[in-house]
């Protein structure tokens, strides 16, 4: 089975995010970049599928020189090869633009299954994976916590509000991951050594037949970034006893905040 994993490198979730001088982007210098956590589930699931069904796992990413680290980490976990589209124009892409680039690569790559994170925890867009499926005219199933492949069909359980829904489709399919799908493995030391020798193709937009000026032009454009409004200095409720504190809190919620 040929499996493609769409991967993005993002600031780690424990990062403190600061806004850059242009007020339209973030400061990237002091941030630790990692594989998007939802994409890590995708890498893990792809490797498990390969272990069961055979075949190979290809990591596909659009990014910068730095993204090589994230792809190497996925290769160290057990993926077989990587493709990085590295082009300055990618910086300006919106979700649809990125999806178009990834789909352009996949048009000429044979695959049975594509796995992507449900969203990247930087842009929180929920769009790229599903748009890739649309551009490749294949079905998608999002937010998957369990999957099973038999006889060329995949059956996926996906989370919805208050429960789950199970769907089935004939391969090729793209599915996106939800927490609960698996526990991603750590890269082992031999894995890290092996990863250095695994193939990693680095291409520009021109190499894959796209016009960088057109491909990088976004339809949704960020015009400003700001921090969420600061909460006013909170009040620590004092009191002689726990009961007194509880009563004072309930009074404040009723009379002052008017939320109960």
């Amino acid at each position: 089975m040929e499996i493609i994993v769409l991967l993005k490198q993002v600031p780690s979730t424990e990062s403190f995010i600061e806004i850059a001088e242009d007020e339209m982007s973030i400061k990237k210098d002091d941030i630790k970049f990692v594989i998007n956590p939802y994409d890590e589930f995708a890498v893990e699931e792809a490797i498990r599928l390969k272990e069961t069904h055979g075949g190979s796992v290809t990591i596909l990413s659009a990014g910068t020189d730095k993204t090589v680290e994230a792809i190497r980490t996925a290769l160290a976990m057990g993926a077989d090869k990587g493709i990085l589209i590295n082009d300055p124009a990618i910086e300006g892409c919106d979700a649809l633009g990125t999806a178009r680039i990834l789909a352009a690569v996949l048009k000429d790559t044979p695959f049975d299954l594509i796995i992507a994170g449900q969203r990247a925890v930087d842009d929180d867009n929920f769009q790229v994976g599903l748009a890739v499926a649309e551009f490749l005219s294949i079905p998608h199933i999002s937010m998957v916590i369990k999957q099973e492949i038999t006889d060329g069909k995949i059956r996926c359980q996906r989370t919805v509000e208050g429960g789950s829904v199970t769907l089935e489709a004939r391969l090729p399919v793209l599915f996106t991951t939800q927490r609960g799908l698996n526990e991603p493995r750590y890269a082992s030391l031999p894995g890290i050594m092996k990863a250095k020798k695994k193939p990693l193709d680095i291409k520009t937009l021109e190499d894959i037949g796209l016009d960088s000026e057109k491909a990088g032009k976004p339809m949704t454009k960020i015009t400003a970034m700001k921090f969420p409004p600061e909460r006013k200095e909170g009040k620590i409720i004092e009191g002689e006893s726990a009961r007194e504190k509880a009563a004072a809190l309930v009074m404040a919620l009723r009379e002052e905040a008017r939320v109960i």
């Binding site: 995010i17 949704t220 969420p228």
Partner: peptide, 19 residues
């Protein structure tokens, strides 16, 4: 002009549409 959270709500971004 819409505002949407990014970075899990650590940032709010203003967005305009072209199209």
């Amino acid at each position: 002009l819409v505002t949407r959270p990014m970075y899990g709500g650590k940032i709010l971004a203003d967005i305009v549409f072209d199209g």
